[in-house]
Amino acid sequence: MIVCVAVVGHQNNPLYIQSFTEADDALKLHHIVHCSLDVIDERVNNPKKSGTTLNEAFLGLLYPTLNYKVYGYLTNTKVKFIMVTTDLDVRDTDVRSFFRKFHAAYVDAVSNPFHVPGKKITSRTFAESVTNIVRSYTFN
């Protein structure tokens, strides 16, 4: 189950963050997302150390914790997408397609002429479509 998704702007400013758990652990999830930003920076600045293909948007597994796995995705426009899941058996292709849909939803949201670039995404349509995408992915 995906427990948290986040969109972070190119100056590491949060654009959208949403957790999908019943329990009251939003703060913990935000903390995990926050930590992953450093991992993304490291991946992007030292591409040789990590095994991922050069310059691909999908960054793969950023780091596993005891209960969660954190995946990242970095667009050409330096916008970061982060996803936290509790599933342990996850196939990369599924995560890739999840991020592709997530990215498409984001693009639709920022193409709204009333959206101010660099500001938080407040669109209800975006929140709905993200919720639908998250619900449609249970990796196990």
């Binding site: 050069l54 310059n55 691909e56 948007a57 970095l74 667009t75 050409n76 693009v107 670039p117």
Partner: peptide, 19 residues
């Protein structure tokens, strides 16, 4: 500028990052 900003987001979607 605003139009270009939004179009770039859409048209760079499926490609690897520029080096």
């Amino acid at each position: 500028y605003q139009v270009g900003h939004q179009l770039s987001e859409r048209y760079t979607m499926e490609r690897p990052r520029f080096s």
